[in-house]
Amino acid sequence: MDTTSSPIALAAIVHAGKGSADALLLEFVQELRAKNYRVCGLVQGPEIQKEDHSLRTVQDLDKGTLYPITQNLGSESTACCLDIGALMEASEVLRQALESPADLVIVNRFGIMEADGQGFNNEIMALIDQGYPVLTVVAHTYLPAWREFTGGLAVELAPERQALWDWFESSRQAA
C-alpha cells in the first residue's frame, strides 16, 4: 500500500470488509482528539433494533446523533437496503464540516452507493476542494471504484495505527 504524501489530503483505510476497520478508525479519532485536534464527520454507528430487524447507522462525531441508513425490505428481498433519503440527511453533517475549523473530516466509508457515483461523493469532493484532509474506509471490493473516483490521487492506507498517523502528519505538513 502506498503511504506516501499525496497532492490532495485524501486517504482511505483499505480493509477486507465487514467493518474490520471501524474500531481502528474510532481509536484514531480518540487519539487525535486527545491531542486537541478537531475531528468531525461521520463514523459507522452501532446497529439499532427496530421491530423485527436491525438498522445500520452512521454517527455524527460532534453531536453523537445516529442516522439509521438502512431500511427493512423484508426477508425475501435481495435489493440493496441502504436508505438513500437517510444518507442524504446524514450528509448534512459533512456539509456542515465545510464551515468548521476541522483538522480532519471522517467519511464513514466509500461503499456501494459511492461506487455507483452517489452517496457521499459530492461531499467528499467539496471537502477536498476546500482543502480539508479527508479520511474514509474502503473495502477491497470497492477499491477499483475508489481509484477511479479519486483519479489515483488518494493515499491507500493499511489498516494499521502507524499508517494513519504517518498519513495525518504528512497531510498537515503539506497544507
Results as ranks from 00 to 15, higher is better:
38 R>V: 15
38 R>D: 07
40 C>F: 03
40 C>M: 10
42 L>F: 12
42 L>I: 11
43 V>I: 14
43 V>Q: 06
44 Q>C: 14
46 P>Y: 02
46 P>A: 11
46 P>M: 06
48 I>C: 00
49 Q>W: 00
49 Q>H: 09
50 K>Q: 15
51 E>P: 01
53 H>E: 08
55 L>Q: 13
55 L>D: 03
56 R>C: 13
56 R>S: 14
56 R>T: 10
57 T>M: 03
59 Q>S: 01
60 D>Q: 05
60 D>Y: 01
62 D>C: 05
62 D>I: 01
63 K>C: 09
63 K>V: 00
64 G>W: 04
65 T>N: 06
65 T>Y: 05
66 L>P: 02
67 Y>S: 03
69 I>M: 12
69 I>R: 08
70 T>P: 07
70 T>C: 09
70 T>R: 06
70 T>V: 11
71 Q>D: 09
71 Q>R: 15
73 L>I: 07
73 L>Q: 04
73 L>F: 09
74 G>T: 06
74 G>N: 11
75 S>V: 13
75 S>D: 13
76 E>R: 10
76 E>F: 07
79 A>R: 13
79 A>H: 10
79 A>V: 03
79 A>M: 11
80 C>R: 09
80 C>T: 08
81 C>M: 08
81 C>I: 08
81 C>H: 15
82 L>D: 07
85 G>S: 13
85 G>M: 06
86 A>G: 07
87 L>S: 02
88 M>C: 09
89 E>Y: 01
89 E>P: 00
93 V>I: 13
93 V>Y: 05
95 R>E: 15
97 A>H: 02
97 A>Y: 02
98 L>R: 04
98 L>E: 11
98 L>T: 07
98 L>H: 08
99 E>Q: 12
101 P>I: 00
101 P>D: 14
102 A>S: 14
102 A>N: 02
104 L>K: 05
106 I>F: 06
106 I>V: 15
108 N>H: 15
109 R>H: 10
110 F>A: 04
110 F>H: 06
110 F>S: 04
111 G>A: 11
111 G>K: 04
112 I>Q: 14
112 I>N: 12
112 I>F: 06
114 E>Q: 12
114 E>N: 10
115 A>G: 14
115 A>F: 10
116 D>N: 15
116 D>T: 02
117 G>P: 09
117 G>V: 07
117 G>L: 11
118 Q>S: 12
118 Q>F: 12
119 G>M: 09
120 F>I: 04
120 F>K: 03
120 F>G: 05
121 N>G: 03
121 N>Y: 00
121 N>W: 01
122 N>Q: 15
122 N>P: 02
124 I>W: 09
124 I>G: 11
125 M>C: 12
126 A>G: 01
126 A>D: 15
126 A>F: 01
127 L>I: 10
127 L>C: 08
127 L>Q: 09
128 I>H: 08
128 I>Y: 10
129 D>A: 14
129 D>L: 10
130 Q>I: 00
131 G>I: 05
132 Y>H: 15
132 Y>K: 13
133 P>K: 03
133 P>Y: 05
